[in-house]
């Protein structure tokens, strides 16, 4: 799976993931409080400059931002019709700024950095016994590993439909996909435990239910 990370050496690339996430959250709150179209316009330009400094390129940016901007424009037009033009402008500028800043953080922070940061943030929860922090990275890795396999299985089920002259329906595709995929869970879990990846605590079976 391709990630949205872009290699580079901009200022944002060099900042730590934590600094970027805290700054993003703080800016998000500030932007929600801010209601002047002029100030929001200035912040949009600043966000645009920051986004441009990352070096994503026009084509990639268009591909990445288009789906989100479509929803923003739909909402802005809706706000224009039912509210005032000023409110529509505020909505448009505020959302554009937020999305640009968030996209810049995403493009400059690698998956590994994010996982490390989240694992660290989950430590207090671990002490409460809610999660095992190291499970987060494991789960992310498992999904990245299994998406291509599930996709391959989906295509095989589609082909099987075609070979039998059946129309592919959501139901007849989803059910075998789910059953075939989840049936692997026991083997995968056994493989993980055999390697001692989650530590050597004795396996607690069926009790937890």
């Amino acid at each position: 799976m391709n990630t949205l990370y872009v290699t580079g050496n901009s200022l944002l690339h060099r900042l730590s993931a934590r600094a970027k996430l805290i700054a993003l959250a703080a800016t998000g709150i500030a932007l929600i409080v801010l209601a002047s179209p002029l100030l929001l316009g200035i912040s949009t330009l600043a966000a645009l400059a920051l986004y441009a400094s990352v070096g994503i390129g026009w084509r990639q940016s268009w591909l990445r931002l288009r789906p989100v901007f479509v929803t923003i424009f739909v909402v802005a037009i809706f706000a224009l019709l039912v509210n005032s033009p000023e409110e529509a402008a505020v909505t448009l500028l505020r959302l554009t700024t937020l999305v640009l800043l968030a996209a810049a953080v995403t493009a400059t922070t690698g998956i590994g950095e994010f996982v490390d940061e989240i694992t660290l943030a989950a430590r207090p929860l671990e002490r409460l016994g809610l999660v095992r922090a190291s499970d987060i990275g494991l789960a992310v890795g498992l999904v990245i590993r299994f998406v291509p396999e599930v996709l391959g299985r989906y295509q095989a089920i589609r082909d099987a439909h075609e070979a039998r002259g059946l129309k592919a329906r959501p139901l007849t595709l989803a059910v075998p996909l789910i059953i075939l995929t989840l049936k692997n869970a026991d083997d995968i879990a056994a493989a993980i435990d055999a390697r001692g990846i989650r530590g050597h605590k004795p396996a607690r079976r069926s009790k937890e239910r």
Binding site: V131, A139, L142, V150, T181, L182, A185, D186
Partner: peptide, 19 residues
């Protein structure tokens, strides 16, 4: 959470991605 539960959840997340 048992390893099996974690794996089931991760596999289902993969299914949601594929959908």
């Amino acid at each position: 959470m048992t390893t099996r539960d974690l794996v089931l959840a991760a596999l289902f997340a993969a299914i949601i991605v594929v959908l």
